[in-house]
Amino acid sequence: MEIDPFIFRLSIFILSIFVGYYVVWSVTPSLHTPLMSVTNAISSVIIVGAIIAALSGGEGVIFSSSSIFGFLAIVLAAVNIFGGFLVTQRMLAMYKKKKKDK
């Protein structure tokens, strides 16, 4: 008996959701800043793949499904990257020593 490839991939996707949830929520607060840096790096790789997908449309075809999904992936990954940088800067600002006014 052979397993349907769609069911196999769907089960891997669902398992990765659970593993990712438990990995992220078990991280101590002091490691959240390095974790955000890693997710920013992963999102930058996603943007490269999304650019390739967005440009893979046929000759003269502007709105193919790959270009639409590629553009959507670029937008979502860019929001993730810039949001991650803002959160990282905010967390690092919490650890800076405050200057006393004279």
Rank of each mutant, 00 (worst) to 15 (best):
I17N: 06
I46Q: 08
P34A: 02
S56W: 04
S65T: 15
S16D: 02
Y22W: 13
S66M: 13
V24N: 12
V19G: 03
G70Q: 00
S43Q: 09
F6C: 05
S67I: 01
V27C: 10
I3N: 09
P34W: 02
S65V: 14
V19D: 02
I47C: 04
S64G: 07
V48A: 13
S65K: 13
L72P: 01
P34V: 03
G70R: 00
S56P: 00
S43W: 02
W25T: 15
I12F: 09
V27R: 13
I68E: 00
G49Q: 05
G57T: 09
G70F: 00
S56G: 04
G20H: 07
A50E: 00
T33G: 07
G60Q: 08
G20Y: 07
S44Y: 09
L10H: 09
F8Y: 13
L10Y: 07
V27I: 15
L31A: 12
I14L: 11
S66R: 11
S44T: 12
V24E: 10
F63D: 12
S67Y: 00
A41F: 12
V23G: 10
G60E: 03
S67F: 01
S66V: 10
T28G: 14
P29E: 07
F8E: 13
L31C: 10
S26V: 05
S37I: 15
F6W: 11
L72N: 06
A50I: 01
G70M: 00
V23R: 12
T33I: 08
L15R: 04
I46W: 06
S64L: 01
R9S: 14
W25Y: 14
P34D: 02
S16A: 06
H32R: 15
F6V: 09
Y22G: 09
L31F: 13
A53R: 03
L10T: 09
